[in-house]
Design a protein around this nucleic acid. Structure first.
Lengths: 194, 194
DNA sequence: TTTTATTGATTGATGAGTCAATCAAAAATA
DNA sequence: TATTTTTGATTGACTCATCAATCAATAAAA
């Protein structure tokens, strides 16, 4: 079995397993054993590669963020024009993979962890800033700077809020309805300024 | 020390302490010892009155919800007319006591816990429903039912989203700005239908 | 004396992190 | 090619700390 070059394979397997287990249980208080089991390795190996549970969690968030960024880049590549780009950004935020119950549960757990871990907090701030600046870039072409700022803030809040509400799974809103609600907000505020 | 009639006093002290400690550490993985210490009693007494940690947490959420409901009732008592009531609801959501970092951190922790505990989830659903139905009651007097529904959904999402974003403490939005953003959303959507 | 309040001491379980030992591929050497 | 050495991969067993929960004992009121 022991073959050279396993490290990247195992790292990825562990990170993926961590995300699955965290999403499934909706908490970061999952054991290294459980994560390792899902990755098909021993708990000791997880420690061998990541040093600590905290570090594995950090890498897991990084992976989630990377995924989201890649999806965003891909989505933006195919569209031109500020208004279309805005729509693409909204669509990416609610795309199925991100809006799945497990993923939402994981995000929530990470937000909670950010209260304690400075590094986790920093990573989530990166996400918040990125969303904001992406929205701003398009909005600035459509309205005055300070209006753009307010609309970006509002749209970002609405997106995050729709996520949270989704996590309760009571009267769940569909992906399409979530997109429509956010689109509606953006549209009507841009129009009003015309 | 032992005096009769301590039970309600101790219960309240423990619930208050729990909220403080949870808010401060931003997690539910606080120890009974720590909560008891903040309440000025032994850990054993906390178990004596609540039976289990889970039960103490449940009572803590209930207390938070009760507080919010009382504030809402008070706020609504002084205003008349649907539009004014809408504003009052928004104001209550962002009132200082609710929007304090510790309180937000506690809410976040509870949302995360809701993924695992059915009872916690049920309590948070109560909050979500209450906010929604309060908003709906006023909105129905201002626009068509299905428009009211959409606006209520959007406003609730925006409120929750502003909370989450606040929890990261990067570029924190002021209470006034949060109120203004939500008011703006509601106003412009009601107006548009006129 | 009975009841209520209270705690110190203890227990049992759990889980993160460590470590020495094993195994097999790869590389070096004969 | 055959043999030895080295190294990365891997784990079982263990340690140490933490914490929820229990319980027997104590103290004060009723």
């Amino acid at each position: 079995m022991p073959k050279v070059g396993m490290e990247p394979v195992r790292r990825k397997a562990l990170v993926d397993a961590a995300l699955r287990v965290i999403g499934d249980q909706g908490t970061l208080t999952v054991t290294m054993s459980e994560i390792a089991r899902h990755a098909g390795v021993s708990p000791a190996l997880a420690h061998h590669y990541f040093g600590s549970k905290e570090q594995l969690l950090i890498e897991t968030i990084r992976s989630l963020l990377r995924q989201l960024r890649d999806d965003t880049v891909t989505a933006l590549r195919t569209v031109a024009g500020p208004r279309e780009r805005l729509s693409a950004l909204i669509r990416v935020s609610f795309q199925a993979s991100q809006f799945a119950p497990d993923t939402i549960a994981a995000w929530l757990a990470f937000y909670s962890e950010a209260q304690r871990s400075e590094e986790v907090r920093r990573l989530l701030v990166v996400y918040a800033r990125r969303l904001r600046s992406n929205l701003m870039a398009s909005l600035k072409a459509l309205c005055a700077d300070d209006d753009a700022e307010r609309i970006a803030e509002g749209a970002a809040a609405m997106i995050d809020g729709l996520y949270i509400r989704q996590s309760l799974r009571s009267a769940p809103i569909s992906i399409e309805a979530s997109i429509a609600l956010t689109e509606d907000y953006v549209s009507s505020h841009i129009d009003r300024l015309k």
